[in-house]
Write a protein that binds this DNA or RNA. Sequence first.
DNA 1: CAGTGAGCGAGCTTCCGCTTGACTT
Length: 778
Amino acid sequence: MVKNLVIVESPAKAKTIEKFLGKDFVVKSSFGHIRDLDKKDFGIDIENNFQPNYIVSTDKKAVVKELKSLAKDAEMVWLASDEDREGEAIAWHLMETLELDPQKTKRIVFHEITKNAILEAINHPRQINKQVVDAQQARRILDRLVGFEVSPVLWKKVKPQLSAGRVQSVAVRLIVEREREIHQFESTSAYRVTGFFLVKDENGKFAELKAELNQRFDTRDKAKAFLDRCTSASFRVEDVTTKPAKRSPAPPFTTSTLQQEASRKLSFSVSQTMSVAQKLYEAGKITYMRTDSVNLSSLAIHTAKAKIVELFGEDYAKTRQYKTSSKGAQEAHEAIRPTYMDQENISGTKQEQRLYDLIWKRSIASQMSDALLEKTNITIQVSTAPEKFIASGEVIKFEGFLKVYLESTDDDDEQPNGESLLPPIQVNQLLDLNQIVAAQRFSQRPARYTEASLVKKLEEQGIGRPSTYAPIITTIQNRGYVVKEDRAGFEREFTTLTLHSGKIVEKVNLENYGYEKSKLFPTDIGMVVTDFLLKNFNPVMDYNFTANVEEQFDFIAEGKEEWSRMIGDFYKPFHQLVEQTLQISEKANGERILGIDPASGKQVSVKIGRFGPLAQIGETSDEEGADKPTFASLQSGMHIETITLDEALKLFKLPREVGEYESKKVTVAIGRFGPYIRHDNKFVSLEKSDDPYTIILSRAIELIEAKREKDSKAVIRVFDEDPDMKLLNGRWGPYLSYQKNNYKLPKNSQAESLTYADCQKIIEAGNSPKKATRKKKK
DNA sequence: CAGTGAGCGAGCTTCCGCTTGACTT
């Protein structure tokens, strides 16, 4: 019989709190929400003022049963879910589902898991705030209405299995629009002029002073003209200014900033960061990892200060409280920090250690002094021209927090400013010129999103919550709207003009640009769906839609608005859009007409087909005996929006018959795994140097023979007793193959000496081959 | 594993936010 039952959301939290509360308290966890809207008929009675129909999810039945029986016997039940909208709703659902007696139920909240905070909470219980619960219900119901009414429209008008939602559709929109900005971007170039001067230092040695001209030239001729004038110029120091400056540490981590920094500094994916953080949390090493708060408990701040003083001395400590600036933050938890701020290192996997190190450094640095800098600017006058060279340098006078941690930026080619120490220089000093370089530089197109920079953008717009950032990224990829990939860059020429020893030399150089690593790209289907939704469901696709409804939810929470009225006001015009779209909208397939096929005079077009994007020559026609169009799938890297007529026509040149070998046809085509030769129903991959459009028969035969040679080596033995039983050589060494299933050989067995009986035993001993549980692709 | 581009029209798909495991590769 328990005296007091405390229910929290997370089991790891339950364990910690139980220690603080002593033997009169049993602390259990609800594992998040215990009920949700039924999936049948929306789970909402739309006719009846949107009455929700909640059911206990199957995977929560056991939890609910246990909590119910514990609650029945308890003298007091303490609902201690988080203090935010979802937490309040969880408490209310518990109240309803466990049929708790209001006389024996109290609602408590705390924002940090410290003994004081918990005891304080117990001393200040309250009732469930039904208004906040209603705000959550409105949120839930609105999301269900949007998701479950718009998705079926997509099934009818675009493709089955697609999805739309308040959050995911806007996330995809961001990526689609960025991609189009990039395609429309026209790069311009300008000449950046850098002067390299020689200055004698105290020891009479020459040091180099690098200075950039305060103006760029938009043409080569103007840059050349400037260099011409410099050939006879003298260079005089006009001004030297030094100014103190300071830099402050970044606030402690929230979920989104942790994901960003782990991506930039450790190359973790967003979901990888979360699963490693989860491990650290469960091991008691860090505080809760799904939070939008930058707040630190006073205990944490004190421990941090003591550690900083111990490691670096008094001067380095400066305690600070940070304020959350992000839109819609609900601050139910602390920032993400080490549980014990004085614990510099932890045991664990390599990944856990690296992430912990990052969290420790960021948290500690947030309580350290500003870095003090001295910035110096030197202005250099050109005797023959009005333009001036500017040299700037930065010297760190006091490291402060920089001793521990510096936040990274998304800008990969950021100038490493700072560290450069300028040689001592006097005003009016004349400088010797070593050389001046005018280099053609191109303007940068907008950057594609990484997983983490998309999270940053979503958070800025107040879209999504800490617990959903990682799942959102996964969802839009799983639905096939977005792919994360690397793409090769391009080469381009750029010109440099160098003035050295009175002579100007012009050179054309090559540079790579536009190489992408782990970036998010929209797919064709992502673009078609986004356009369709923008056209037909514009209000929901608005970047401010979430912010606007959030404002309404706040009104509900404050009691200024009634939830079913708010939902009703939204639903009427929204549902109208759904009906209207179903009636009047054409099927959307992203069709684009590229031109006319010169060979047949027929129209060439691209669109999304049943199995993905395709190109077609000719049109489908209802007329009797009309020619059917011919089709070809687009290859990876080709996109409906950017493919050209020539590229599309080339697709129809394959499969190509190159001749006959052993009186069987030899054809060449490009498949899912690249270019291949097909002969006698066997497939042989082309090598990188082979071009499927031009390869000739003799080379094809060569490849076929090479493949045969390799295959013959692959078979170690086929048993006479049963030709299905084969010992084969695979990529990872010998293995046993039987009726399309593969089996590992026992360790230390000699494949050559195995008998038929041995092999039968291996098959029996091996786990019964799993049925081909085919995973859905996309 | 390497090609499909329709048809009888069954029965299914889908949202966001809270939480962990239970799964395979």
